[in-house]
Design a binder for these strands. Structure first.
Lengths: 185, 185
DNA sequence: CGCTAAAAGCAAATTCTTTGCGTTTGGAGG
DNA sequence: CCTCCAAACGCAAAGAATTTGCTTTTAGCG
């Protein structure tokens, strides 16, 4: 098994504070503009003092990145369509849609804005996990399926790059990307 | 011809202030940790008052994004190797190397951290420009060359995605990406 | 049942950010 | 060439956020 996500032992005071701060941050992000959210605000909402947050997270970006990474963690297994190609297509379309929403874009930006590459890498790991599930199911059925890294390069990377730097891709374009991944399988 | 980059008429006081603030920001970023750089510091270095910077840029992120976009603007034409494939390979390798440096990564993050999609889009535009130059040269020689969007999806996106979320790709992997772009031409 | 180390609270000191108002400046029109 | 104007800057005070030293609380452990 892996290490704990963040915050020391589960159930302690520390964990409770972290949970309430996370919840407070999510609530505030939901009901006001991102630029209006400050640490003192979150602290008040969470019922802690600002210095607690400053000491634990250092700055707003770190906290928001922490919250965003948690929200980005997939909460369900990829839908099963009967084929690896269909599974990947369904997953990619949903991923593209979620990430290109304004909430999705903000979360990605928050994750990238934090110091150190831990957050982004965790997100990439989540994606890998999901694709691995799909690939293993396909393997069990005896299908050919592209390597994880091929899927990352050909499907995930273009989706994310366009969201961040250009214009989000529509479902047709995403479908095209999935095809090119399989053409390399 | 296009519009002016930023700041009103060239040569005015406004332009001078912008130039000195940009230079001050670059200097400070070069000699101290990014997290230590503040608006009052930049203002002092540039010889203006902080309020000038606050009024013009609003917050540190916007200013740093502005500076980063400017530094990301290509200052030379892609090297000519004799073939479109060679040109693209040379360009992609250099691009990957520049962007995966710690300075490059910080600039990308700064650009993404600013509000509004103007900065990222401009960066994407710069990339498009460079690739267009290569593509047109190839066209003049009668070569086949992939569409710009194919190059973005297959070459640029993976390079940038890996830098941001995973591990920067080495030169061999970049070469492989260029090959896949041509296999779709 | 105390002890202890880690974490939180509190509050003062510092630093950053915002804002109102007066001054400067570059350019347009007379 | 001169005058006027709007935009941009400087200054300084008010308001927020951040940092920090010290005290208090708390969960886990012997």
């Amino acid at each position: 098994m892996a290490e704990r996500e963040a915050g020391p032992r589960p159930g302690g005071r520390s964990a409770r504070v972290q949970a309430s701060v996370h919840r407070a941050a999510r609530d505030l992000l939901a009901r006001m503009d991102r630029a209006e959210v400050t640490i003192p605000l979150i602290a008040a909402e969470a019922g802690v003092t600002p210095s607690t947050i400053y000491r634990r997270w250092g700055e707003l970006n770190e906290l928001l990145a922490d919250v965003a990474v948690e929200r980005l963690r997939p909460d369900m297994v990829p839908v099963e369509t009967g084929s690896g190609r269909g599974d990947l297509l369904a997953w990619a379309e949903q991923y593209a849609e979620e990430m290109s929403s304004s909430l999705g874009r903000e979360m990605i930006r928050d994750v990238l804005a934090a110091e150190g590459g831990a957050g982004p890498r965790r997100c990439c790991g989540y994606v890998r996990q999901q694709i691995t599930v799909i690939a293993e199911r396909a393997g069990l059925r005896g299908e050919v399926f592209p390597h994880i890294d091929t899927v990352l390069d050909r499907v995930v990377a273009p989706i994310v790059y366009r969201i961040l730097f250009d214009e989000a891709l529509g479902a047709e374009r995403v479908g095209g990307l999935v095809e090119t991944a399989f053409s390399a399988a």
